[in-house]
Simulated scan of single mutants.
Amino acid sequence: MNIFFDGQLLTTTIYVTYKGLTIQIDDVIVDTGSSHTIISPDVLEEIGVTYENGDPIYEAYGIGGTVPFYTKIIDEIRIGDFIAKNIEIDVGELPKYHNGLLGLDILKEYKFVLDLEQLEMYAKQSF
């Protein structure tokens, strides 16, 4: 799948399915510095992803300080031809103009390869 470089960041498009509803999420940062994949709650509300009693809550630490997140199991995440089912993602606030971070929990687990010359990304392993 294609990745995009805006002069500062690499971004891509992902598709998230939850309880049978799917949403296309653009402007997701390909973030090898993030240990977890994080999606904005504003985006996921469109398909019914909201905090529910029992969802784990924790604080993430980064350059900008700490931010609370909750964890959710979603039906499916699709990135190009790659599909992972019943996958855990974090839901939390992100900087303006970006809808998510694609982190190492997915990039490393599924052995994604980033071709920065061709601006392409693909998973070496499919499940």
Rank of each mutant, 00 (worst) to 15 (best):
T32R: 07
G62P: 01
E76W: 13
I87P: 05
G103L: 01
K85T: 12
K108P: 04
N53A: 15
A60P: 03
I29Q: 01
I73S: 12
G92H: 00
H36M: 13
L114V: 08
I106E: 04
A60N: 10
G103Y: 02
T66I: 15
D75T: 14
P56H: 11
D90T: 11
I73Y: 09
V91C: 01
I73M: 15
G92D: 03
T50N: 06
E88A: 13
L10N: 03
E117I: 13
P95Q: 09
I38R: 01
Y122A: 05
G65V: 02
G48Y: 09
D81F: 11
E88D: 13
K19T: 08
K124I: 13
I25H: 02
G54R: 02
D55C: 15
I3Q: 05
G54I: 08
F112L: 06
Y110N: 07
K96F: 14
E59L: 06
L116S: 12
M1I: 10
L114M: 14
D75K: 04
F127M: 13
L102C: 10
D42G: 14
V43T: 09
A60V: 15
K85S: 15
S126P: 01
I38K: 00
L10P: 00
I23Q: 05
I83E: 14
E93P: 05
M1R: 11
H36S: 08
D42P: 07
D31F: 00
V28R: 02
T32G: 01
L116M: 13
K111E: 13
I77T: 00
L102Q: 01
L114G: 07
Y97I: 11
D90M: 08
K96T: 06
Q118N: 15
L104N: 10
K19Y: 11
Y61G: 11
I29G: 02
V67D: 05
V28S: 02
T22R: 12
I38A: 03
E76Q: 15
K19V: 09
F82P: 03
F5V: 03
T17L: 02
I29P: 03
Q118L: 14
Y97L: 11
I87H: 13
P95Y: 09
I57E: 11
V67P: 00
Y58K: 09
G7I: 01
G100L: 05
P41D: 06
E93D: 08
S34K: 02
P68Y: 01
V16K: 00
I79A: 01
